[in-house]
Design a binder for these strands. Structure first.
Length: 917
RNA sequence: GGGCGCGUAGCUCAGCGGUAGAGCACUACGUUCACACCGUAGGGGUCGCAGGUUCGAACCCUGCCGCGCCCACCA
């Protein structure tokens, strides 16, 4: 016996455990492989709405394909999330008044592992609550031994081929986290700032004529004598590191002083005035100060022109104690230094003006502090070279993006790609497999032994004696033989290998052979660059093939007002709260139903509630079946059904199945969910069960037996079709409605041939539904009390209609609340008349009928017909339309016109009659 | 500056060349034995604006007006 209602809280854990125990999450071994690798959530993470959507969609696909007989592997795992995880642990240390540097690196890393062991399972536990059918026996972690080995191998291999190299150049430096970060980890935000205009005096009191007024043709008409060059900056403190002032070569205003020198105030150095294409003569003064060591643009100009770089700041963005920095600024924070510089410039009478200005400022996406361009040694991946094949693969369609427009985003980035800075000055992560020898040479190898071997070999040829070398190895030399690079790799480096490293690479495992390329990657567009592009590069390079055939890019989940959810805004909707309140099925169905391609999801709780109600509806339908002896009979063959009603519902179920299947094949999750929603609620519950009631509640008969079986059969098909979306409630009903051998999760997906279509039956039942609806509508408009039974007369029914009336008399009577139903040649006086599919049906309400209301109703109906007819006439009278439109369309219009005309005539007759009465 | 996307019923959104749709909200009615997390019926839209293509446009094209996102070095 089914309970009165479904209780997700108790059923979900129980069902999940049963699935896992049954081995359903593991690939079956039969059927073609279907593989998805999960976008590994951060170990530090907890489930947010984005995860909920992402994993719901993956689970829908996995369950769908599993039921279709594929050997499904959904590969789970988590990401070590370098910066994020290190920050979490450091925050915990801070609570105990400790900091990372109180520990040795090894001890700190051990602490992180400890933390991971304790709390790292949070997100996977939460994924289970969602119902994710991952193969947990294969769970991986980006820093586990196998994946770390893959990382080392990839690094060494790329290094050997010159695709990874060490270089000193300007990087994005995070002065809070004290590490370099990649371009992608920088968020440029517009903030209110200032634009300071300074005078740099010319050397030796030199002067020149500077135009200050122009005629209509742009020729100067007025000049002033200047002994300085005017520059403007948003970052005054960097002026201390200027190496030159640049003007555009075509800028005539400055032509007289190009090649001369000006004084760099405060630093009291002389710097050259040079030309370069970079300055825009129409912006600011047209002259740009060049601070090569602290600005990306200036760096390029400095490189091109051989201008020296003056490094001003330390790793915390404080002014250096260094010759480059005048004494009074040393040790100041960059913003303190800024104030001081402006004040000092002003004091010297060199401040021309200060403007308010919106400026784009770079912030670290994790630290939130302003990023400082810094000249440091870092490791870089040659993304341009690796990107070539990744671009080709998408151009040639080996990987396709869905929706397709994301290919454009992908190409745009890939075609303008910059070297990828992969080293991070952190402790938590994959330490770079590079060692430095006493000669400063770098040895890159998968193991220290190998690096040592290389070092020994090289040093011997360089003239080091074996004795010295061995002394260094023993630690008895002047220093150690090798010192390992301290840096770790960008988290995305290991993530980039995920599709093959989790399948066993570099070992040639069976999975790797069978499952790479994986079928589809499901992810959000926010990590196309971070992750998708990098997987494409690494996959093409190391597997010689793309990592996935399809990339399904899903929406972002926003709040109901369309705002990004964020803790600071306080508009975060917690998926677990919704699961607690409405069940995982309701949340899943909501997300799937709203996952239309190319659109963001504005989640509202009302919607979740609505789909919870849908689950309840399904549950109650199943209870109804149970109470009425609709027992599932495995021997039942829908093709043998002889009852029209049963033929019809099988036909309709088949349509729903086909629609759902096609939608899922095309990643149209919303259409798939919508098709099932409509079928279950508006077809199966609203009509099939209602129409079946008289038979089911009536005496035993072959028709009743067939209806019971057909109804149970259709319900079980619906459970299958809904299972990918609502796995819990459907699984519970699967077990609760019949004794079955296996779990629903392992059942076979309904195939089209199982649903014989039957247009005759469809036509008949749809006629019946239309008639009942029309009568109900008329009753309501005539204010007939809902409970009142009234007579109906089928007027002048032709033999076919008479037959149907006889056949469905009881049903119509029951569902439209009629008694009796008769057939007569003419309508009685004062009756409400309904026109439906060419037939006229009269409700004799003499006495109770509101004649005015009925006239109004008929008038409205007639108006509708007239309007339709007019529209059609307009089309048909257009010779061009008849000539050029497809015949089917013309024919369709002709038929519609006939139908509307007939309807109008019958309504008009009814109106005439009621007017007489 | 470049790119992507969105403006359709009060709200959230489907539809994307041939009869304007759903959910929620709203109104009226309902003690019909699965379900009030329900049932029945209903109201509500010049599909942002203006042109164009077409026999026909919410849908295709162009421009404009709003809104959002991503990328980018204007000091």
């Amino acid at each position: 016996m089914l309970e009165k209602s479904f209780d997700p809280a108790s059923a979900e854990p129980r069902l999940y455990e049963a699935w896992e125990k049954s081995g359903a999450f593991q690939p079956s071994g039969k059927g073609a492989p279907f593989t998805i690798v999960i976008p590994p959530p951060n170990v530090t993470g907890s489930l947010h709405m984005g995860h909920a959507l992402n994993n719901t969609l993956q689970d829908v696909l996995c369950r769908f394909e599993r039921m279709r007989g594929r050997s499904v592997l959904w590969q789970p795992g988590t990401d070590h999330a370098g910066i994020a995880t290190q920050m979490v642990v450091e925050r915990q240390l801070a609570l105990q008044q400790q900091k990372r540097t109180d520990f040795t690196r090894a001890d700190f890393v051990a602490k992180v592992w400890e933390w991971k062991a304790q709390s790292g399972g949070t997100i996977t536990a939460q994924l289970k609550r969602l119902g994710a059918s991952c193969d947990w026996s294969r769970e991986r972690f980006t820093m586990d031994e196998g994946l770390s080995a893959a990382v080392r191998k990839v690094f060494v291999d790329l290094y050997r081929d010159g695709l990874i190299y060490r270089d000193k150049r300007l990087v994005n430096w995070d002065p809070k986290l004290l590490t370099a970060i990649s371009d992608l980890e920088v968020e440029n935000t517009e903030v209110a700032g200032h634009f300071w205009h300074f005078k740099y005096p010319l050397e030796n009191g030199e002067t020149y004529q500077f135009p200050i007024a122009h005629d209509d043709e742009g020729n100067p008409t007025e000049w002033e004598t200047r002994d300085y060059i005017s520059i403007a900056t948003t970052r005054p403190e960097t002026m201390l590191g200027d190496g030159a002032v640049a003007v555009h070569p075509s800028d005539k205003r400055y032509a007289p002083i190009v090649g001369k020198k000006c004084l760099l105030p405060l630093a009291d150095r002389y710097i050259p005035i040079i030309t370069d294409d970079y300055p825009d003569p129409d912006f600011g003064s047209g002259a740009v100060k060049i601070t090569g060591a602290h600005d990306f643009n200036d760096y390029k100009v400095a490189m091109r022109n051989g201008i020296p770089l003056y490094v001003l700041m330390d790793e915390r963005a404080r002014m250096l104690h260094d010759d480059n920095v005048p004494e009074k600024y040393r040790g100041l924070d960059r913003y303190e230094a800024r104030k001081q510089v402006v004040a000092d410039i002003d004091a010297r009478g060199l401040l021309i003006k200060v403007e308010d200005k919106k400026i784009m400022q770079p912030f670290g996406d994790r630290s939130g502090v302003v990023i400082e361009p810094m000249l440091t040694d870092q490791w870089y991946v040659d993304a341009e070279e690796l990107g070539k094949r990744a671009i080709d693969a998408v151009e040639q369609g080996q990987t396709r993006f869905i929706p397709e427009n994301w290919t454009k985003t992908y190409f745009q980035w890939m075609r303008n790609i910059e070297p990828w800075c992969v080293s991070r000055q952190l402790w938590w992560g994959h330490q770079i497999p590079a060692w430095y020898g006493p000669d400063g040479h770098v040895y890159v190898a998968e193991t220290e032994e190998e690096a040592t071997r290389q070092a020994v070999l090289r040093l011997t040829t360089e003239g080091y004696s074996l004795e010295d070398i061995n002394a260094m190895r023993r630690g008895e030399g002047e220093g150690p033989l090798l010192v390992r690079d301290e840096d770790v790799l960008d988290t995305w480096f290991s993530s980039a290998l995920w599709p093959f490293s989790t399948l066993g690479w570099p070992d040639e495992t069976a999975e790797l052979g069978a499952r790479y390329p994986t079928n589809v990657l499901v992810t959000g567009h926010d990590i196309i660059f971070f992750w998708v592009a990098r997987m494409m590069m690494m996959g093409c390079r190391f597997m010689d093939d793309v990592p996935f055939k399809d990339v399904y890019i899903h929406a972002l989940v926003l709040d109901e007002k369309g705002q990004k959810m964020s803790k600071s805004k306080g508009n975060v909707i917690d998926p677990l709260t919704l699961i607690d309140k409405y069940g995982a099925d309701a949340l899943r169905f909501t997300l799937a139903a709203m996952a239309a391609q190319g659109r963001n999801i504005r989640l509202s709780e009302a919607r979740v509630e609505g789909y919870r109600n849908f689950g309840t509806k399904l549950w109650n339908a199943a209870r109804f079946c149970e109470m009425n002896g609709c027992a599932f009979d495995p021997a039942f063959d829908p093709a043998t059904a002889t009852e029209t009603l049963n033929q019809w519902i099988v036909h309709e179920a088949g349509r729903a199945a086909a629609e759902t299947t096609a939608a899922l094949e095309g990643y149209r999750f919303n259409d798939a969910a919508g098709a099932m929603y409509k079928f279950v609620w508006n077809v199966f519950c609203d009509w099939h069960l209602e129409l079946a009631k008289p038979i089911l509640l009536g005496p035993d008969s072959p028709a009743k037996a067939e209806t019971q079986k057909a109804t149970a059969w259709v319900l079980s098909q619906a459970l299958k079709l809904l299972h990918p979306f609502m796995p819990f409630v459907t699984e519970e009903l699967w077990a609760g409605t019949a004794a079955r051998a296996g779990h629903l999760i392992a059942a076979e997906w309904p195939q089209a041939p199982a649903f014989p279509s039957n247009d005759m039956a469809a036509g008949e039942i749809n006629w019946l539904i239309g008639l009942i609806t029309a009568i109900r509508s008329a009753r309501a408009e005539m204010n007939v009390p809902a409970g009142a039974k009234i007579p109906m007369i089928a007027v002048g029914a032709d033999p076919a209609v008479s037959l149907r009336i006889d056949l469905y008399r009881d049903l119509v009577a029951r569902l439209a609340r009629l008694d009796p139903i008769s057939i007569a040649p003419a309508a009685p006086k004062g009756a409400v008349q309904i026109v439906h599919e060419g037939g006229v049906y009269a409700l004799p309400l003499a006495g109770i009928i509101d004649i005015a209301a009925e006239k109004a109703r008929l008038g409205k109906e007639i108006d509708k017909c007239v309007k339709e007819i007019e529209t059609i006439d307009k089309k048909m009278s257009n010779a061009q339309f008849v000539e050029r439109a497809p015949i089917e369309i013309v024919e369709e219009n002709r038929e519609r016109k006939i139908a509307f005309s007939e309807r109008r005539e019958k309504l008009a007759a009814a109106l005439a009659q009621i007017s007489e009465a």
